[in-house]
Design a protein around this nucleic acid. Structure first.
Lengths: 114, 114
DNA sequence: TCCTTTACTCAGTTTTTACTGACTTAGTAA
DNA sequence: TTACTAAGTCAGTAAAAACTGAGTAAAGGA
């Protein structure tokens, strides 16, 4: 998409990026991860208000596979597991900020129309 | 989200931006609109391969309400209707390009891991 | 002893999103 | 007369995503 037509939509880097950040809870998770630098599972769950264990744990697994985050397990009892953004994950932030600024402008315009 | 915590997720400009571009067909539509500058309904449908009338027409309506696109109807017979991005819609493009570049890097990394 | 914490997992159900395929009105071309 | 183009609409259904609520093991505290 970014340059020319892709045969399959999955090949388009932009569509690909959206599959990574486009579902309901991805941004809140990424945001909490970024604010906290590193964070434990339950604390993350508290910060990402309203998320269920199922969605959170599955999201974390997928994001780990995708190379967005790292999971570090400490050999302690009780178990300690910390999550943090990878470099690739952090590289997303500027794009998100740019999108957020556009979103902010749009919100203002939408309000002005009411 | 972009600066501080929002009480409601809908208030976050980034979440808001994603509701605009995050569903399955939004990017392909925006992309076609941007490439063509102005385009008629059926031509748009041909270019956005695989989209159904229902999804396309509903998407266009919502995007018009959101101020992303304009619908211009010509008083001709047969009916001619053209769609194009608004300024606000075009302002999205740089953010999308930035996201697309990030996506491209990620795709390369993912492939390297296989 | 009972309750809480840690980091999850799971079956079942609801909600959301998208797809199927037919239909519309008016005009042109074969 | 039949068929096709324009720009859609619509009821019904399937598929995808998210939610509900409970359960797990091992340890610490009241």
């Amino acid at each position: 998409m970014s340059e020319e037509g892709y045969k399959r939509k999955e090949d388009c880097p932009l569509t690909f990026a959206l599959t990574i950040i486009g579902s309901k809870w991805r941004l809140p998770i990424i945001w909490a991860l970024w604010k906290n630098k590193r964070i434990r599972y339950n604390e993350l769950k508290r910060q990402v208000d309203g998320i269920t264990n199922m969605v959170l744990s599955q999201s974390l697994k997928e994001m780990e596979k995708q190379g967005l985050i790292v999971r570090t397990q400490f050999m302690e009892i009780p178990l300690r597991v910390e999550y943090s953004l990878t470099e690739a994950g952090e590289a997303l932030i500027p794009s998100l900020k740019s999108l957020a600024e556009w979103g902010k402008e749009m919100q203002i315009k939408v309000k002005a129309h009411v």
